Simulated scan of single mutants.
Amino acid sequence: AGVDLRVRLGPRGGYLSLPTLGAVRADTGPVELQCHGGELTVRPADGAPFTVRVQQDGATSSADPRWVPLVMLPAVVPGAGPVALDDLDPYRTRGDGAETHGLGGAAQIDDWERKAWIESWSGVEPLLRLGGEHRLTEATVLLRCMVPLGPPPGSGPTGRSAAHCSGTRREAFGAVLSSKPATPAYFASTLVHELQHTKLSALCALVPLHHEDATPRHFAPWRPDPRPFDGLLQGAYSHLALADYWQRFALHARRVAHRDQAWAEHARCRQQVGAVLPVLAGSAALTPEGRTVVNEMITLYHRLEDSPPPTGHLARAEAYVTTAKVIWQQRNDSRRQ
């Protein structure tokens, strides 16, 4: 933020982590930090002070071995800032109920995994561009930090859950939490999905969109549990963006396999959104601003019909949503009894 500071902090597990910047190796504490003019002076309790240079784009450098910099993913587009891959902060998923939300725990990645992240990241830019220049702009402007997660609970050869998970934190604007995406295409779609939550959360912090309560009562085809109205709005907003992204991907994909996969993802997301839009539109608790957002979502939803998916994909997506609702009703009816 470019703000001068002077603070004393205690290390944890031999490190004092500074989210999105790096960490100080320190066995005892506290550590005094003073930042002025882009230079961070570190005064550990058990050693001589040293300095860390903090550039405007967030990259750091220091000749002192006690400083552990973060891996920096290259800029999404030339001229933009790099994106931190923060696997050092010990508190990065603390208190968020990760398992409750189907997320994996915090993961510290090794050299092989870093290479896999960087390799997948290198293919993101052209795939985001396939989804429209606005998707590339969103990632360039909004994304500041990727936080690696482990695979979701229950995943693996004998698990029941998905092999990938991702999320955002309302109090950590610009950060996306994610397990390692399997392909650049899914990396790009993860960014599309999560940055919608980032945008809508920022909007909600500026102006209320509804006055519904927080009771989890609504069916959402992308979740097994009942959702509060706000969660339904967030999920529909992000899945609508995914439906738009995958449709554009399908229309521009050159390989038949890629096109087929994209149509399947588009059809599923579109049907999921279509199942909940009537609930959002029918709410009497929407504010004028919230009504504007929902009306624009409905407009985009109908615009997607101009390029429908192949019939087979649409039929499978309809069956998927119908089955999800039946299972949801059975599960939640049994819980009420």
Rank of each mutant, 00 (worst) to 15 (best):
G13H: 07
Q337M: 08
G154H: 02
H218C: 08
R53S: 15
Y91H: 11
R169F: 03
A281W: 00
D213N: 10
V293N: 04
H252M: 08
D46M: 02
R169V: 04
Q34S: 14
L314V: 13
G290Q: 12
L240N: 05
L232R: 13
G150W: 02
G150V: 01
H36R: 15
A262S: 13
E32K: 10
L18T: 05
D57F: 04
H302N: 05
S17N: 07
H302C: 04
A324Y: 12
G105C: 10
A275I: 01
S283L: 11
R170S: 08
T299I: 09
W117G: 07
L142E: 09
V293F: 05
I327W: 13
Y237W: 08
A319H: 11
P228F: 03
P221N: 01
V7A: 14
Q330N: 12
A284N: 07
R92W: 04
W328P: 00
R303K: 11
L130D: 08
M146Q: 06
A162M: 09
A241G: 07
A182D: 10
G132Q: 05
Y301T: 00
R335V: 13
Q329S: 11
L18W: 00
A319M: 08
L143W: 06
A175R: 07
H164K: 10
F50T: 00
E119H: 02
L251T: 14
D260C: 12
V31I: 09
D57P: 07
L191S: 07
H164Y: 14
R92K: 08
T292A: 12
